[in-house]
Amino acid sequence: AEHTLIISSWAPPTHGINALMWPKFTEMVEEATDGRVTTELKLGIAPPPAQMDLVMDGAADASIIFHGYQAGRFTTSKLIELPGYEGSAEAASVAYWRAYEKYLKDAEEHRGVKLIALHTHGPAQMHTSEPVETIDAVSGLKLRIPGGVGGDVGAALGATGIQVPAPKVYETLASKAADGVVMPMESRKGFKLTEVAQNVYEMPGGLYRGSFAFIMNEDIFADLPADIQKVLEEEVFGEPLSREIGKIWDEIDQAGRAETEATEGNAINAASEADQKAFMAIAEEVRATVLEELAAAGVDAQAAYDMIKSEMAAY
């Protein structure tokens, strides 16, 4: 190939991000450019919050960021994290990109890097060692929830936050420092929750969704020949890539669910109708606060929210 993009990534090598998403990205890039551009994946160069600096300064050409790891930097990413949306990660990721183009772009929160995809993992559910059957039982639990909307929802449910990075989740649960975690179904496999958090409390649409972005170095992109830039912009970057990555999030969620069902002693408790109603009320409050935050950042928050809601419903 004429050009090789160096990708810096985190998460375990076997995690869907590295085992499926980057290979998909590579496949799309190679196909669009007839093999003139390819990639090389590098793991463990720096922790997640460092990735944006690395890409900005050219230590890597592309990377993946989880917006919640950098508190204070991203506000608009909270829009897609809100509970209450119904639909797959694929639908959410496509809607997210479209809403970004229309409403979120102007906030310039990714300034300094080229944004090439936005996506979200599947609905985050609660995983605990002791079974949780009602939403009231969440109050008083010590839960590991990432920052952003997840944290707001946890607080609204009366849970106490335990702050550990994802790779430390297993240890934290095994030593009972936390009663549970809120993560998507895929992490039951990816982070071995089947061993330490045998019970899932499942809320349709999840307690939140995590927001991710694929980013690229601006100079590296500018240095590519014009025809390659054009074809990448048209066939890979933006909505096409966001859609494909969203699909993979759905796929690995299925694998996590299958593993749970196949593991003895694991159980999935669906939230009752009444609990779903009660959660809707909580979600409503969180949403109001978050939309206010977004509005303060200069975004037409309500319109953006309505757009995602209707795009997902129509998907």
């Binding site: 720096a46 922790p47 919050p49 460092a50 600096d53 690395l54 300064d57 230590a59 990075p165 100079d219």
Partner: peptide, 30 residues
């Protein structure tokens, strides 16, 4: 990253990586 040890872009990339290592290692919770 730059094709030469004195390449300006390569050095900027390297120093950014170094700078983040300096800041992140000492702040590694584990």
């Amino acid at each position: 990253r730059g094709g030469s040890i004195f390449d300006e872009r390569g050095l900027k990339a390297a120093l950014s990586m170094v700078g983040r290592q300096i800041m992140d290692t000492a702040q590694d919770y584990g």
